[in-house]
Write a protein that binds this DNA or RNA. Structure first.
Lengths: 229, 229
DNA sequence: TTATCCAAAATTGTTAACAATCCTGAACGA
DNA sequence: TCGTTCAGGATTGTTAACAATTTTGGATAA
């Protein structure tokens, strides 16, 4: 334990965004955050600076911090960068996955299917992200893993802003062929499966419409913390 | 104008590291920074949080902030990630460079050669980094560009820590073939030239030795600012 | 000499108060 | 009705003082 308040804020906000509890554009007031996380404003401000450096948050001087709203341009760049990163990760992860890794990934997919059938989209999104990050961990490059973590989070924001229909997120079981290729050690097959999956994901967004949104910050952030206090 | 103190600190520290004025492990004291940049400690602390999020700095609780010291493992990961990013950038930049871009890049190379002949290594390093980032800008993907900016900075730290000999940094004119391929629009040739360059760069480091270092923070940071005031 | 201890100095971490800016909403006039 | 103006409240930005921790340097003893 003994995690600094700053780290807790950063992790919680990223988690909340990754599960679409915090939509793009949400204002992150300093007072609110300091109350939710039981710390002083100085810590909040440092956390917001970190989040801004990670492109999670936009800081507007004298206005406050807002969850980033990727532009269509930015969204295109994020997808392209993600394809490049995931290709590299896939090629490296092939032939390096243990039986235990495969089991864990299949278990993750099962949970995804369950969440999908239950119509529990936030959980499904969280699991999908965990799936990709797990593969990055198997690849064994922490720098790439961290980059992917950032890009998947931004992808979630993009889908929340420009996604067409709830089913297109990660629903159709693109993940199974990925694990199959990973298990058989077929590097090029894995790269192809991953690329197809990402292009499928990208096809599910349309930049013609933008969804404005507002939400009550407090409840969205508290969802993942012990809310009894 | 009208740049926040925090942004100035972040930019200055990154610049200083990119020119090897600030070696790995240098302590960045809050008092020192607040005096150098004429601002209060709150701003310094926020800037350090941002720098930590960018892996420029390590924060040790109750100890302070230190310029990151990449481990050999991390160095390997950074090189690998950089190859992946630069390949993608190169493929995209090919066939998209204007005549003006080519001229600017050749001009940059000329300046690099001059700096090299003058034995002015910091300037050479700065120009080499600018060269790569310029190509990223030509590629037109800001996300990849920002990632490369971070990776090149970390590369500089790695070379400073583990580089063998001053000549191996970027000296041999690997950059000219890159511009040639870029000019002729030969995407695969460009990728190959870039990859060869990066592997050449990577060959210039050895993890058997680590160079301890210390430096006087103030002078290193002030070098790039107007020191007359 | 070398190791240990301890007080003083320096540095980081926290807090609260104050200043500056922005947002809200009602009063006012065209 | 519609747009403007302008206090009042809320929020962000700044500052200084204080607390907690680490580092430093010398005194002491083996």
């Amino acid at each position: 334990m003994s995690e600094s308040p700053e780290d807790r804020i950063v992790a919680s906000v990223i988690d909340a965004i990754s599960e679409q509890r915090l939509p793009a554009g949400t204002k992150l007031g300093e007072q609110d955050l300091s109350e939710v996380f039981a710390c002083n404003r100085a810590n909040v401000r440092r956390a917001l600076a970190s989040l801004a450096a990670l492109h999670v948050v936009e800081l507007r001087p004298n206005r406050g911090a807002f969850v980033s709203s990727p532009t269509p341009e930015e969204a295109k760049d994020v997808f392209e960068a993600r394809r490049a990163i995931e290709r590299t990760i896939a090629r490296k992860a092939a032939g390096r996955a243990s039986a235990q890794d495969i089991t864990r990934l299949r278990c993750n997919i099962a949970a995804e299917v369950r969440a999908h059938e239950d119509g529990h989209q936030p959980e499904e999104l969280r699991l999908s992200r965990a799936f990709h990050i797990d593969i990055a961990r198997i690849a064994g490059n922490e720098v790439l893993e961290r980059m992917l973590a950032e890009l998947t989070m931004r992808t979630t924001l993009i889908i929340g802003l420009y996604g067409t229909g709830p089913g297109s997120s990660c629903a159709d079981d693109d993940h199974s062929p990925i694990v199959d290729a990973l298990e058989s050690g077929d590097a090029e097959g894995l790269v192809a499966a991953m690329d197809a999956h990402l292009r499928h994901l990208e096809a599910g967004v349309s930049f013609s419409e933008a969804k404005p949104s507002s939400s009550s910050l407090r409840s969205q952030l508290l969802a993942r913390k012990g809310g009894t206090g």
